[in-house]
Design a protein around this nucleic acid. Structure first.
Lengths: 235, 235
DNA sequence: ACATTAAACAAACGACTGTTTACTTTGCGA
DNA sequence: TCGCAAAGTAAACAGTCGTTTGTTTAATGT
């Protein structure tokens, strides 16, 4: 890393997009938006270290310096990406959890797992821009080492994670806390690996099971994990 | 990538290590070995794209050109790393599986999972050289995109993977093949994420559960996965 | 009309990338 | 003791990296 580098001018406000002039057609995406879109896809595909800013700006048909201007740095770009995507996922998780807690009811384990997994696997899927890019990106960062990336990820999701561990614990009164924590960890692994969609299982099963098919993936995943969570605690 | 580049001289044979002169003390590791050791650790820690050859050769206290000399290229170094590590893991897996199939007995699901998971999590753990580095590296490559790396990984493990899917199917006669394949995929995710040891679960549980503690991890993991595998197939 | 300012741009910065070249040292068999 | 291939090395090569600079365009506020 070179230096902290204050921007020469104040950064433009996040939502400051001019309305489309003339017809109310789809507004041409701003430079900022185009960068975010292709960066999301390329980071996901090749990893943070695997793509250069030149590749991103070329693909977005945008000047190289635009990234410094709009996001300050490469890390700033990643941070902006997460600010735009992670928060909605965490919110949707909590919303779904609250939804099945209404009227003081205790939600089933399956409901909790669904509320946790579904937003992660479905939100931000934009087929017109190369598919579930953010989902892949998150999975990548989940296994990457202690970088700024991981801190961002932790900050974005730790809070909702704790809430879900609590909810699972409530749904499984007999289980020791530590057992639930281990199993939560296993669930994260299952989720991330499905999100990463490395292609390994497709080649191993001649395409019979495809983690990119989110509906089917969730349909198989939730009962599998629920059974694991409910099994007798060890030792 | 620059070019394929035939080596100027034939590569030295893999096992051509001179016996230690004088006392039978620990032979000073050859240049080749030192490169492999630190490359394993650094690739694992920062990913293939995250480390330069200069960082590796400096840490190994070895000349920069030694990598080209001994391995031909950066990818060649990774290939040599896998040739040294992956095969023993696959072999140990099949050995353990054969062991619990002796006398025509049908092994239990737990035995099969143990035979599959234990070698991956334990083999190649060298505390004196920065801990379970290869384990982390494998986890990283498992979520990385379609690079040479993933092809190497697939070639090294696909064969034994199919054998284990078959073994699990035999142990669970009631389950449709597709269900077993999905659950095998989920198991891979659990395994890789535990191997990656991203530190997320530690911070989430104040250190109570540590995926680096392999014995405990396996102890919790196998019953969890077994329960998932045994649960009723979905629709 | 003028000043201000966000946005976009081409060009360059120094550091670092994997790889190659040309050279020197080492060790062993004849 | 010579010969010769293996082993090891310093320096350079041709790029790419993330970042910075100085300038121009386009729109706003006064």
């Amino acid at each position: 890393m070179r230096r902290a580098s204050a921007l020469r001018t104040s950064r433009p406000k996040a939502g400051a997009v001019k309305p489309a002039r003339g017809r109310a057609a789809a507004a041409a995406p701003s430079v900022r938006e185009r960068i975010l879109i292709v960066a999301e896809r390329m980071f996901a595909e090749h990893g943070m270290e695997g793509v250069g800013l030149r590749a991103i700006t070329a693909a977005a048909r945008v000047n190289l310096a635009s990234i410094a201007y709009h996001f300050g740095s490469k890390d700033g770009l990643l941070e902006a990406l997460f600010a735009q995507r992670a928060a909605p996922i965490a919110q949707e998780r909590l919303r779904l959890l609250a939804l099945c807690c209404e009227d003081g009811k205790t939600p089933t384990l399956e409901q909790i797992l669904d509320a946790f997994l579904r937003p992660a696997l479905t939100l931000g899927v934009q087929p017109q821009f190369g598919g579930p890019a953010f989902v892949k990106l998150r999975a990548r960062l989940g296994t990457e080492p202690e970088t700024t990336a991981r801190k961002i990820l932790a900050k974005a999701f730790d809070q909702s994670s704790r809430k879900f561990i609590d909810a699972i614990a409530q749904a499984l009164p007999g289980q020791p806390r530590e057992e639930i924590e281990w199993r939560y960890h296993f669930m994260l692994g299952t989720m991330f690996y499905t999100m990463a969609n490395s292609g390994r299982i497709q080649s191993l099963t001649d395409g019979r099971c495809d983690p990119g098919d989110v509906k089917r993936a969730l349909h198989h995943m939730i009962p599998f994990l629920a059974a694991g969570f409910r099994s007798a605690p060890v030792s």
